[in-house]
Design a protein around this nucleic acid. Structure first.
Length: 157
DNA sequence: GCCAACGTTGGC
DNA sequence: GCCAACGTTGGC
């Protein structure tokens, strides 16, 4: 089992939105590296740290789990969507996404400054400069440290 | 609002 | 295939 961190701007889609909706397709990713991780590496059941970006402060807000894999992102076929991709077709969809299922809102929001302060999180991708990738792998040790900081047992089921 | 980082585009 | 220009991300 692999562990992940996925970024979303809470003004657009927050962990509270996922709580209300229970499950959601992770649409709108238009970066090949992020797509490849979703398409090739993610498996049903993998835990996902839900990260709030572009907000004050940014940080890890909750937990989700991968509930479905290998789905075509429907927004690539919607001409009115800002994620529309005229070069993609339903026969050969270019943008593959996963669906995630809500697990919990963390009792304690772990802010980016807190992540930076923890010596145990040395090497965590999201605290590196210029780490723009919106889907990131997280080591099991880092994942468990963040769960502890969030005051969560991170039980996925 | 600024700007560093970095991905993408397109001319050559 | 190189690389300058440009666009986006996202912290600050």
């Amino acid at each position: 089992m692999k562990h992940w961190l996925m970024k979303s701007e809470p003004d657009v889609y927050s962990v509270h939105d996922l709580k209300a909706e229970k499950r959601s397709g992770w649409d709108g990713v238009r970066n090949y590296q992020a797509r490849n991780l979703m398409r090739d590496e993610m498996q049903v059941g993998d835990p996902v740290l839900f990260y709030h970006s572009n907000t004050k402060p940014p940080g890890v807000a909750g937990l989700a789990r991968v509930s479905r894999t290998g789905l075509a992102d429907p927004t690539q076929f919607e001409p009115d969507s800002k994620y529309f991709d005229p070069k993609s077709s339903p026969d050969a969809p270019r943008w593959i996404m996963v669906e995630v299922e809500f697990v919990e809102v963390f009792p304690h929001f772990v802010s980016l400054p807190e992540l930076r302060e923890s010596p145990e999180l040395d090497g965590l991708m999201v605290i590196k400069r210029g780490a723009r990738l919106s889907v990131q792998p997280v080591s099991q040790a880092h994942f468990q440290t963040i769960c502890k900081m969030a005051q969560s047992k991170c039980r996925v089921q």
